[in-house]
Design a binder for these strands. Structure first.
Lengths: 242, 242
DNA sequence: CGCCCGATTGAACTCACTCAAATACTGTGG
DNA sequence: CCACAGTATTTGAGTGAGTTCAATCGGGCG
């Protein structure tokens, strides 16, 4: 039985904007269903044209691009609350794939409803655009990281960013949270080899900044990581939830 | 005297969508002015909150992020037709700067008009969102390039992308076009050192694929560059012009 | 028990970086 | 008109951060 938008568990989190009952009513209408995806399965396939949009209700995955020879660049980790598929709906070709890492549950929207939404619900259209801008903003940071930072800085940067995202989802307890991805995924996100990513993580552990073992990340010193990564502090605000 | 939208020189190019006279009339109204920026001057400053949006009418520049210690990542080259400032308008902090490389002329829009536009001109809001999606799409490609490709592949990739953008602006004659940037800029865009960028360009020249001297780029073999860069062909379509 | 997958560590290599110096061009001032 | 300073490009030489190859270890599972 699909979750009703007016009873959305994500909406209760402090990190997401709240909506009026009427707006929630409309969202329920906009949502046409729910699907479950198992680990390893594709949600969106590069090149294919998906007629759907999704909001991640639960579970995590990776968004990535592949070169023809198999190299893979993870462009972002996909987490609950993320709105997926806007580019596909606007542009005609999809430039990336999304694959589930844990079991995922997604709210499904119809691509063809986007236009009506722009026409009749400018607030929601505005929110969607906000989310795309936010995603672009993140990609810019990631690009700067991969292009300019050293391996140590990159890993430190990633840990801070991931930690903050998890915290916004209320999943961090005293710097500790369980992180379902492999080191290979982090390597592919940072443009590093698996071996070097591992060795770099060991360095951070030795310095007492953070550790990652058996699926659990422990951030001992966020401030130290942030400084090491040469990144400035950002105040994360509430964001819309589609 | 500012250019009137109904007489916009960019709009005549085949790469941009055309608008009805009524729509053009509205755009003229939306546009509140025009400004000129000299080479080296900032258009948008990181951290500052600009109350304005711009469309590049003429001239070129660079969009970049800087780390506190001065390292610089160019996230895109800014060219005529580009719409600037959407993130600033949506998000509250600006994550990048834009600096003019050549003299630039920009159409100016009021940030506060965005909301009315979403409410009353859904088609234009849709176009703006399209442009943001397109920009994000590009950033994804750039990220995959910097994260996964070798120096030779990166430079080849950049030349193909740049060549195609210039072609869409009607500035390419038989693979030849004048490119106003420095090699340092390309290096900062690709996450390479200036020296290595230069040596890599020399390699491409030796292979007869492309050359870049005295501000003029010559793409002798676009197909060869594309293959070398392990990139797949993309059909570039008409895009909206705000 | 044996197999597969992910994490970890060691060793050798290499691509790209830094340092350094030469060339060429442009604008400025004497 | 020339000297000079500043900037961009080019090339050589040596170094090093990160890669690839390889082997080991440990846990989960059929």
């Amino acid at each position: 039985m699909p979750t009703d938008c007016s009873n959305c568990p994500l909406r209760r989190l402090p990190g997401f904007e709240s909506l009026s009952p009427e707006e929630l009513e409309f969202m329920s209408h906009f949502k046409v269903g729910e699907i479950d995806v198992s680990p390893g399965q594709a949600v969106v396939i590069e090149g294919a044209k998906s007629p759907q949009l999704f909001t991640v209700l639960d579970g995590m995955g990776v968004r990535f691009r592949t070169l023809e020879d198999g190299r893979r660049q993870i462009t972002n980790f996909v987490m609950p609350g993320d709105f997926i598929g806007m580019q596909d709906a606007m542009l005609d070709d999809i430039g990336y794939s999304i694959e589930a890492t844990t079991p995922m549950t997604l709210c499904v929207f119809r691509r063809s409803d986007i236009w009506t939404l722009f026409r009749n619900h400018p607030e929601r259209a505005f929110d969607m655009t906000w989310l795309v801008c936010s995603e672009e903003h993140f990609m810019g940071s990631a690009l700067a990281t991969v292009g300019q930072r050293s391996a140590l800085e990159r890993v430190a940067w990633a840990l801070v960013v991931i930690h903050d995202r998890f915290r916004q989802l209320g999943r961090v307890d005293n710097g500790i949270f369980s992180f379902p991805f492999r080191q290979q995924d982090l390597a592919d996100a940072l443009g590093l080899s698996l071996v070097h990513t591992n060795k770099t993580l060991a360095k951070l552990r030795d310095r007492g900044l953070a550790s990652w073992a058996e699926g659990v990340v422990r951030v001992f010193d966020r401030e130290g990581l942030r400084k090491l990564a040469v990144m400035d502090e950002v105040v994360r605000k509430v964001r819309p939830l589609i």
